[in-house]
């Protein structure tokens, strides 16, 4: 087997688009699921059928989030650049959730503000860690290239 044959076999694992697609799917599932959850929790007196529908949608969103999370941790790992892109996607997903929650919830309850802020802080911290890790590798690359 030549190196080129081997690289062909590893093509799926080495695809940048695929890795970012998995991360995007995870965040879309998470944001969608969280928004439906907010709607469900803040809408009083929903009929049973609607509650079941919301429950199913939350589960579907969570399933996509779990699948995407599994894929980027176990199947196609995120390299430093991918982690930065994925972290920006995470922050964007949080913003979608935050704006959506403000629009959907008639009166924003206190617990929702706490949950929303906690998610935002987590997304921002994740981005900071990713940027720092990439910067450290860039510094090391520059040192080695000298």
């Amino acid at each position: 087997m030549t190196p080129e044959d081997l690289l062909g076999r590893l093509d799926a694992q080495l695809s940048f688009r695929r890795r970012i697609a998995y991360a995007a799917v995870a965040f879309a599932g998470l944001a969608g699921s969280a928004l439906i959850g907010v709607l469900w929790a803040t809408e009083p007196h929903l009929p049973a059928r609607t509650q079941v529908s919301f429950g199913v949608l939350v589960v579907i969103g969570a399933a996509w989030a779990i699948f995407g999370g599994w894929a980027v941790t176990r199947r196609t790992p995120l390299f430093a650049r991918d982690r930065v892109v994925a972290s920006w996607l995470g922050l964007a997903a949080w913003m979608v959730f935050a704006v959506g929650a403000l629009l959907l919830a008639p009166s924003v309850p206190g617990w929702l503000i706490v949950v929303g802020c906690a998610m935002g802080v987590t997304a921002a911290a994740n981005l900071a860690v990713a940027l720092r890790a990439r910067a450290a590798l860039l510094r090391r690359r520059a040192e080695l290239a000298e």
Partner: peptide
């Protein structure tokens, strides 16, 4: 080798083929 590995960890597209060719 370390430079190639660091470039791979950064996610540079052409670094992994280089690593494979070197160690395969």
């Amino acid at each position: 080798d370390e430079l190639i590995v660091v470039r791979c960890q950064l996610g540079e597209r052409d670094a992994f083929p280089e690593l494979v060719r070197h160690w395969h």
